[in-house]
């Protein structure tokens, strides 16, 4: 536990482990068979080093397209995505991804430990350090005792923990998560949300967390990007003033949480109806009070 442990008490806004992620005028048009489909129209935003940003939007808002462009898995039609100043053209080093389909993103022919170790091998991490990282991260996600099992012998929540452990062991500067908890049960989901917050605080990395769940976005994020329906633009960049320490009972019962929830919910509803800018949105509960951190 050497390296994560000594950063555990560091203040949240000092995150040496993260990198800046910049998205400028990103546009993505799918040209397959049939009509070209414009999935993402024009996205511009920035994620500061060590920030945890959630992305929400109505279903079919191109959230996954955005994430795949960020991950370098999908080439953008135009615009720039850069990580720490370097443009992303393919999967960049220093970036780890956790996908929604936990059952399908783990190699079924490898044990849990081998799944975590494989990317490290490819990164040419020395053997002793690899073993250390595997043990550490599996312990951190509470899976130390199933290291030798195959992923398909575990429950869905445990499988997603393996995927998270693999991402964390990779020691990325940026962690991308694409609706990682969409397919796990509610209990497990709360546990995994707290796990993500804990790991994020400890490692000081930049996290982009895509979700369709508004509560989850507000609970996890320092900022929430609300997307419009396809073709996608940013509807609003909502700051979340809920402080650094969050708790499933306390935070979710907070008045500020309720206010943000109402606001984002309304935005998503408007987005569903085709509203494409904040000026056009008819909000019955205007978000007038600017959020104050720790208020």
């Amino acid at each position: 536990m050497s390296s994560p442990a000594n950063v555990a008490d560091r203040p949240v806004d000092d995150h040496p482990g993260g990198a800046r992620l910049e998205v400028r005028n990103l546009r993505k048009v799918y040209t397959g068979r049939g009509e070209p489909v414009e999935a993402v129209a024009d996205l511009t935003f920035e994620v500061r080093p060590g920030e945890l940003v959630c992305v929400v939007g109505p279903s079919g808002a191109g959230k996954t397209t955005l994430l795949r462009c960020l991950a370098g898995l999908l080439p953008a039609t135009s615009g720039d995505v850069s990580l720490g100043g370097a443009p992303i053209t393919g999967p960049p080093p220093g970036m780890a991804v956790v996908l929604q389909e936990y059952g399908r993103s783990l190699f079924p022919w490898m044990s849990v430990a081998q799944n975590v170790e494989l990317p490290l091998k490819e990164k040419r991490v020395p053997k002793a350090r690899r073993a250390e990282l595997v043990d550490e991260t599996l312990a951190a996600v509470g899976l130390a005792d199933v290291a030798g099992s195959y992923p398909w012998q575990l429950s869905g929540g445990m499988q997603q923990r393996v995927a998270i452990a693999r991402a964390v062991a990779y020691e990325p500067q940026v962690l991308l998560m694409d609706e990682p908890f969409a397919a796990v049960d509610a209990q497990t989901r709360f546990e995994l949300e707290d796990l993500v917050r804990t790991l994020w605080k400890r490692l000081g990395i930049t996290v982009v967390f895509v979700t369709h769940d508004i509560d989850e976005a507000i609970y996890l994020g320092e900022r929430v990007l609300v997307l419009s329906a396809r073709p996608t633009v940013v509807l609003e960049d909502v700051a979340v003033g809920l402080g650094a320490d969050r708790d499933q009972l306390e935070t979710r019962g907070d008045a500020e949480f309720a206010r943000l929830r109402t606001h984002v919910y309304e935005l998503v509803q408007q987005a569903k109806q085709g509203v494409r800018s904040l000026a056009d949105a008819h909000l019955t509960h205007p978000a007038d009070t600017p959020p104050r951190a720790g208020a």
């Binding site: 999967p91 996908l99 399908r104 993103s105 490898m110 990317p119 490819e122 990779y170």
Partner: peptide
């Protein structure tokens, strides 16, 4: 999804062939 995972973690050609 496995192919994407291998690409995202920058597995090289040999590792992709062998492990995936």
């Amino acid at each position: 999804v496995l192919r994407d995972t291998a690409r995202a973690y920058r597995l090289g050609l040999v590792a992709t062939l062998r492990h995936l």
